[in-house]
Design a protein around this nucleic acid. Structure first.
Lengths: 325, 325
DNA sequence: TTGAAAGCGGTACCAC
DNA sequence: GTGGTACCGCTTTCAA
């Protein structure tokens, strides 16, 4: 560019012409050349120099899980509105896949990481060379110094759901949970357990099954639960919508009569539950609030606007099955 | 690194030590230093130099749409298995958001783009400076020279679904479609129309409503359709699961009696439909095949292994509502 | 067999 | 106000 330095051009492009008192004439000339060639600065080279990419990594078990996809959507929208982008990876709740996903994201210089992690603590993540990149844990609590976690109040949700059963004087209340090591699964189990105790019911280990947080997991757990000797439950609480779907499928395939007989309740809601012939209570996790909070934590961390605090979001109970009084 | 050049190190890291006949001793020394410092090459700097990021961009209307999230999952898994990453953006089927999303992805040097586009042709995309980056169109056909499209046979799916209605001698069969400009919506309408004609039924414009491919779109279309003077339909075909959900919600809120009376059928399936008190036929789009095909096209294009061909995948009819014979 | 040096496209510091 | 220049971390060509 005749007679104009790279620096000057750079100032103009970055809108810093004013600060550096660059002449209107120069600006005009530079602008003309820019327009003529349709020049767009390389976000990539810029990021390389500045070691930031305006990209956030989201690592999640399964994007087909409706709740997680709701989270993804919220986060993606927020992120996009601030000029960032989202890069995602599924882990199938597998520790190795998770580590692998985080590693490649780090190598691509994401500016921050949002993790729905399979780990109970952050030891594994500390081991990775995160270059000080902020990590926000979503949906599941992760132990460790200064970890930032955004989660639903899982204990309360499970407690309320179970309470609905006990108020109906149901006794044999079963629980189908996710992986036992995960904080959300654990907390939901505790809520269930305490609600039973409060109603004077002794938790029966035979009525509690843990497995993967997937439809298949629910199917297998249902099989285990419903084919055992000790008899069938009056009610079943599933710790996620995916588990419920698996349970329903199992009943549908093997013993459709059960569908009306055993009362059901679940974590996570689904619009179609409104139309089912049997009424299923649910606890709605506020994906919008959770996603936004995780996003806020990320932004605060990136811009060093501390303190960044963990957040527990209350769930919302959706009653479809009224208690007869 | 004492007495060893950057070049040599680079050769060793990239496994090209053999090609360059580097001494075992040197390799050992370099390796030792690498191990000691836990050095990991910067994928970012590498990409900068090579102008490729091993990242693919997916631009999609709404990741909460179950079918689209199924596609996303398949693509993400395939991509990850080949060492690539996925960066995603939602567009709400809005042309400006789509252009914006593509633009920022291009500026971040994605290696290829998979688009579920709102545009009927590729004019807008040609206008963008794509630097020769391959684009694969998914779910919706996009006109233009040498465009590569991976879609379901939408015409056939809608035809089959409508045929199920006409075989039951239903006459007033309504259609709730997506945006009229989109190829999939158009093709589904044509399938519906032709099935009616084949049965000797004159398509009634009053029974056809187009709107956004969303739950809200379905709700509004349902309102329009069901409150008009000319009387109610015997059956309704919705062009997507989201539209069906909106329709169900509307009926639920305003006229629950209709739920059993009007026969329903829909594009896209959902597991919970198995449990509904009213039987809904559906056409299942093979997200797995579609996603994999799109991925294959992308990889072929990136590696210049032509020819890359468009693909139309047959849908699968799921009959829940048997025809009485 | 190994090393030096240029360059990808920006940013930022410093001198004029 | 404007221009020169080093540098981010890697690849690649060429020279030694």
């Amino acid at each position: 560019m005749a007679g104009v330095s790279k620096t000057t051009v750079s100032f103009i492009i970055n809108g810093k012409a004013g600060e550096h008192q660059i002449s209107a004439e120069t600006i005009r000339r530079v602008q003309a050349v820019i327009d003529e060639h349709g020049y767009v600065p390389s976000e990539f080279a810029r990021g390389f120099r500045l070691r930031q990419t305006r990209t956030i990594g989201l690592v999640v078990g399964d994007v087909n899980n409706r709740f997680l996809s709701l989270l993804e959507k919220t986060i993606e929208t927020e992120i996009r509105n601030t000029g960032f982008n989202l890069i995602i990876a599924s882990t199938e709740d597998n520790a190795e896949l998770e580590t692998e996903a985080i590693r490649t994201m780090l190598s691509k210089f994401v500016d921050a990481l949002i993790l729905v992690s399979v780990h109970p603590d952050n030891m594994e993540h500390n081991r990775l060379n995160t270059r000080g990149i902020p990590i926000v844990y979503l949906d599941r609590m992760v132990e460790g110094q200064n970890t930032v976690c955004v989660t639903t109040d899982n204990y309360a949700g499970a407690f309320q759901l179970t309470e609905q059963f006990t108020r109906q004087s149901l006794k044999r209340i079963a629980f189908i949970g996710g992986l036992e090591t995960l904080s959300n699964s654990k907390d939901r189990y505790r809520g269930y357990e305490d609600a039973l105790k409060q109603a004077g019911i002794d938790p029966d280990p035979a009525l509690v099954i843990h497995g993967e947080f997937t439809v298949e997991g629910g199917y297998h757990s249902a099989e285990q639960l419903l084919t055992q000797k000790s008899g069938q439950p009056d009610a079943i609480l599933t710790a996620s919508y995916t588990l419920l779907e698996g349970l329903l499928q199992y009943m549908h395939n093997h013993d459709p009569d059960l569908l009306g007989r055993i009362k059901l309740a679940t974590f996570d809601d689904h619009p179609l539950l409104d139309f089912m012939p049997f009424k299923i209570n649910a606890v709605l996790q506020d994906a919008n609030t959770l996603g936004k909070a995780a996003f806020d934590c990320v932004m605060k961390s990136i811009h060093g606007e501390g303190p960044v605090e963990s957040l527990v979001v209350p769930p919302m109970l959706i009653i479809r099955d009224q208690i007869e009084s």
